[in-house]
């Protein structure tokens, strides 16, 4: 009986992993779109910087830096919130159950009647690392686009 239970848990963990990956992917796409908008809005400024002799790579660094800043701040805020929720899960579920007069895991249906939660430092580090890496990858395309901008074209049409 326990074997089935652990199998189900394992299955659930895989499903959770896929869902969370998708969420992170969407978040990374949000960085991409935000940066593309920033680049479009800064077309004129990029052209000015280039006319003053800024190199392609220095323009690229500016936007990679901005993207990483978004990624780092997001990762830190996310980690703090996530840890707070994980450490206080019992209190939070009790509060929500009280609020909505509803039992998440009724004891007569499931083996357990509370959501178990453990913080595994390795998982935290791994997920933060992946989030950081993804946000870095997300900056590359918009930054490359910004750096490759033709200043003459941007300045030609006023």
């Amino acid at each position: 009986m326990n074997r089935n239970f652990f199998k189900a848990l394992k299955m659930e963990k895989i499903a959770m992993f896929i869902i969370l990956t998708l969420i992170v992917f969407v978040a990374a796409l949000a960085i991409v779109t935000t940066l593309i908008m920033v680049v479009m809005g800064k077309t004129r400024d990029i052209a000015i910087l280039k006319s003053m002799g800024a190199t392609t790579s220095s323009i690229m660094k500016i936007f990679i830096f901005e993207g990483l800043l978004i990624g780092v701040v997001g990762t830190i805020v996310g980690t703090i919130l996530g840890l707070l929720i994980a450490y206080n899960l019992e209190g939070i579920t009790q509060f929500l159950e009280g609020l909505f007069r509803f039992k998440f895991l009724p004891g007569d249906v499931y083996y357990i009647d509370e959501l178990p939660s453990t913080v595994r430092p390795l998982d935290v580090v791994l997920i933060d690392g992946i989030a950081f890496l993804l946000s870095f990858l997300a900056t590359l395309y918009p930054s490359r686009k910004a750096a490759g901008l033709d200043p003459a074209e941007a300045l030609r049409y006023e």
Partner: peptide
């Protein structure tokens, strides 16, 4: 090369445009 050209532009050329083109 593009990099040398950027450096050259930085040292040798000054631009003044019609619409000022300052960084706001």
């Amino acid at each position: 090369s593009d990099r040398d050209l950027a450096r050259f532009r930085n040292r040798t050329v000054g631009f003044v445009f019609q619409f000022h083109h300052l960084l706001l």
